[in-house]
Design a protein around this nucleic acid. Structure first.
Lengths: 225, 225, 225, 225
DNA sequence: TATGAATGAGTCTTCATTCAT
DNA sequence: GATGAATGAAGACTCATTCAT
């Protein structure tokens, strides 16, 4: 996962022994990128600091100049992944005037970002629990922000009369899980279709009705609940 | 997670030093239950064999009488979780003659099972990667079987003219991810609604059309892709 | 330093992973004896757990079954040294009816114990500061108890009219430092004389007057302070 | 501990990468003072070069311009402490014509110096063993010189007929240990009395007889040893 | 000369696994 | 069959020392 040169999230409480802000940013990026790769491939616990150091082409000691401990590395790694979503989705989604177009573009962008970072996405799922609570909450907060991007697109479509007045919260999660599934179930989808096809097929299912008019009628009691 | 007295999946290559089949089953169940609880709560790597032994009320040595190594325990634990889905979904789903009713019941059952085993479900997500490939594949196989239960319900609905002829594969995954989301995003949904409400709201979104007729028309180019 | 088979000071808050009290005592004694030797010879920080394990003829892991961490080992080691004083002084001092005889015997015993454990004594001096405060205080408490043994002998001598009514506190510390000096200044005294001679010469200086009658008279202003 | 501007002991084999003698002296003094403070407070091993650098207000690298390694710093630190005794005792002891007065003044001076440098004194006790043998011997030599100051005072008193012809060596060590005890047992004496009172009470015990005439008679066999 | 970032050997500590009882 | 004490390999982390600037 290529990391944007700009430091997106402030160190978020991770202490460095080096002062020089620019150097800290550069080194952290270098290390975090190596960590994302290793954590993504082998998991947090199975990856050693020495693995990361080797991958990053630095010494073990260096890592401890820029991170307090291994958990710090995981934390910034996950943060980095989520930040990259938050940044790339809007920028790839374009800004078409048509809300439906924007919605579709956003979902495509989301899934493309995930496609480019399957390991990293799985990492965020697997290892967030390895963080202490405060940090776990910060991560959830980030996820919320990403969700909000999608939710906004949905709202816009409703307001424009393109979407029915459906349950935004649920549809948002539907979309989010759909995007994540491309990473979480990569073993199933990869090879069968491209991301683009995946999204198209998914949107077709999600946006059109599944129930036939007949099914519709029988569905009544469900609504009554 | 209560484990069914019957051993559902043969030891699947896990070797035991004890002969007595019945004893092996009993002990393994005892240990696996403790393991699911511990792995679910603290993760695979953070849980020690000693933790599991204590929780199961047995000695450390005993575990090695019934399992070859720690990975074996994880393997049977995850298998157990998936087996319990495979067993409880059909049995709770009922066997209404109406396919739509059966579909709805199945989704409710699925989510209820997951609700009862949130930690275990997350466990399967987090730690499957810690298994060697052969076993990982066995796990995927199991998941396939669960998916097939859902897919069958969908097929039935289509055949009965209650569902449109939609993309079964995608809808199946939609449903599966929806069910898993109840565990994976527990921190979001828990407290906001009950499982029952979650399923009802979810089904409403999934089965009804999202696009308005106007949105429908604009959607055309999407199909063209 | 040979350690008495009886466990003298309860584990004092040091946690063991093994239950069997007798085994714990045996193992701790074995490890603490090795530690006293190594710490005494090379100092606390320069000694590795692996050193101690080797010297004790056990594995590194074993030490951590009986001690929480390295500091625990140091703590019990120092405690052991002080406990051995507290035990051996009275038992070697005899119980002559004559207070002066008992006093002399006690000082001889004290110095003989120290002579037998020079390294251990120096250890207690050097490394007590490496302990956390609570434990440092426990150590001081122990030292107080040893001092009390000497102070009691002095009191008895005064009560019996054999000693002048001098400053008990100061004389006690004089004696204690005298005994410790045999270890702390071993490089000076060793080889020049035996412990016995050291004590005799020391007592002669400490108990008899240094000032001549003429010096006495000039000393007056000092008293006036 | 304020260090005298004059470098008292030649570098004693400690190599510097810098030529300028005056600069070397100034830098070393600066660093050694910081080291004495840190070593005294936290011990040699627990103190890092970086700690010392910070305290001295210089960079880590600078220290290695003036010292070969960490042990060099410790060595010069301990030397500095002992040198400061050697210098301050005579200068504070005054030069009264009366030997007894000079003796008393010397003991007072000794204890006052130690009182001003309790941590440093304890440092010399704790960490001398961390030096290689050659240096340890140099340290002992220094201590000898200090002891000689006291011994000379005693000799003078004897020659002047103010002291009995007692065991000079033993009394010297008595005095030395008495002075050191003010640092080594600071936790006991501090708060109970001032240094001045400590010395007065100590001298009273050390110089006057402890044994009563009756005790004197019973003491006979002791002499016989 | 002075700096402080970089290095990596060395330590403590944990924990899966074994095996004598 | 069951126990739990013993083992030791492996990994996180520290810090003295170097060296390019």
């Amino acid at each position: 996962m290529a990391v944007n040169p700009r430091t997106r999230t402030a160190s978020a409480g991770v202490k460095s022994k080096v002062e020089d802000r620019a150097l800290v940013d550069r080194r952290r990026r270098q290390i975090v990128n190596a960590a994302i790769e290793r954590f993504g491939k082998r998991g947090y616990h199975a990856t050693t600091i020495s693995d990361i150091a080797q991958r990053a082409g630095v010494s073990v000691g260096l890592i401890y100049q820029y991170f307090g401990d291994k958990e710090d590395v995981l934390f910034l790694a996950i943060l980095e992944v989520l930040d990259s979503y938050l940044e790339q989705i809007p920028s790839s989604a374009g800004s078409s005037g048509d809300p439906l177009e924007r919605f579709r573009a956003a979902v495509h962008a989301y899934c493309r970002v995930i496609d480019a970072n399957v390991d990293a996405t799985v990492l965020a799922y697997r290892e967030t629990k390895s963080l202490r609570k405060v940090r776990r909450n910060l991560i959830k907060q980030k996820e919320h922000e990403t969700n909000a991007l999608i939710a906004a697109c949905i709202s816009d479509c409703i307001r424009a009369g393109l979407f029915e007045k459906i349950d935004i919260e649920l549809l948002t999660y539907q979309i989010v899980m759909f995007a994540h599934a491309w990473a979480l179930k990569a073993w199933h989808f990869r090879g069968k279709m491209s991301v683009g096809q995946y999204v198209d097929r998914g949107l077709a299912v999600m946006l059109n009705r599944v129930l036939t008019p007949r099914g519709q009628r029988e569905r009544a009691p469900l609504r009554a609940r």
